[in-house]
Design a protein around this nucleic acid. Sequence first.
DNA 1: GATTTGATGTGAAACAATTCACAAAACATG
DNA 2: CATGTTTTGTGAATTGTTTCACATCAAATC
Lengths: 227, 227
Amino acid sequence: MKQFTKHAIKKSLKRIFLYRACLVRLKTMGVEKVFSYTLANESGVTSDQVRKDFSEFNIKGNKRGGYDINDLLERMEKIFHRNKDHNIVLIGMGNMGMALSKYNKFVQRNMNIVATFDIDPFKHKIRSDLPIYPMSRLKEIIDRFRVRVAIIAVPEISAQEVCDELIRNGIKGVVNFAPVLLKAPPEIVINNVNLCDELESVIYYVHQLMSGDGLKNIELLYRDMKY
Amino acid sequence: MKQFTKHAIKKSLKRIFLYRACLVRLKTMGVEKVFSYTLANESGVTSDQVRKDFSEFNIKGNKRGGYDINDLLERMEKIFHRNKDHNIVLIGMGNMGMALSKYNKFVQRNMNIVATFDIDPFKHKIRSDLPIYPMSRLKEIIDRFRVRVAIIAVPEISAQEVCDELIRNGIKGVVNFAPVLLKAPPEIVINNVNLCDELESVIYYVHQLMSGDGLKNIELLYRDMKY
DNA sequence: GATTTGATGTGAAACAATTCACAAAACATG
DNA sequence: CATGTTTTGTGAATTGTTTCACATCAAATC
């Protein structure tokens, strides 16, 4: 059987996120330039890898002089389209939705949750700083704020239904915190974040390491098992 | 420079999570057996891939008969050590920590948050169903409940410090929700979940798809960009 | 300004993951 | 019970990713 899709998220792109996180930290520490091996050390990859990744995204440094952190960050802003503001809607104001609506790092990175939605918009109104709308006003808000990306934090039973509704109203990308795999047309970007799986995979590797018999599979782990 | 580590989380293992999610759903729909291509269709990979993955984990089916869903799920339980109970501690009872402490899916998968910790254990006591302890009682609780895995949901400024403290007290695996890359010895399993990155990567791909110029990199996306 | 040094950038080589292709097994059918 | 059909399981081929190795350049030093 022929696979429907090509190319999931590229590993090199995931590492660009990693590099940026390190660069931001180095910058706050007053560092102004890095060498490929500095960044490599910080992020737990090889210096070759850093240079290859940069080369893929056409990021150039100075021979012998390394890379200027401000240049790098600016370049990465462009890669991630962070020069613009991004309006986001959040569906589901249960425990997780409420926590996400108060997560101030989104704003710091130009991602603004402009509105939240819930089937029962009055339930938590007091505890929320953001407006909570009923689902019936979805289209209106999405159009007004030109929203293209949504966060789903509803119970698993209604996640697919909500997702379909979002797509009908023009949403192109979804981060889904409900523990179900969403189905959507291929032109829609879906990122399922499954908290149980994240925890379970840690338990899996801890067992492997402690029992020792699985070492053929892992040998050594870095500070983030995803890289 | 030689890289410090070999082998991050295996892609095949990540797909096993995916298969299980699909199998659970199929089971609730009354399905009892699957063929490699059934499961492939459900999970958006190829049937070859499914069989290769099963082969890697020594999962056998019946020639012509496909796979029995109950068998498969049982086999996967063993892979993930889900036959046993796992005691977890949660550090940080801010918005995110509070939401995680109320997330009932963990319990359904035999992962029990036995205690939570906060520098200010009285702050939210009323709203929490779980005991909130001061950090000074970390060792006592970890030892009593034989905890090996922790969830970090503290502000980024204290995340590394908390992580070090956890490792000193016997924790072997960490899921970290603070937006920093944690450093830890190689024998410790760390899974950094960065909410901003999850959202940003969706924005990135939505832009790629809409502008069309990046299609050389992605072509088509499935329902989850991670696979 | 010639020479040494230390870094980048990138083809080539090695390694890993995926897809292909088909033998082997199990069931159905006549 | 022989034959045809369907599906698994897995080596072989292909494709993708990482590592190696070194030419190239820019600065530092003599």
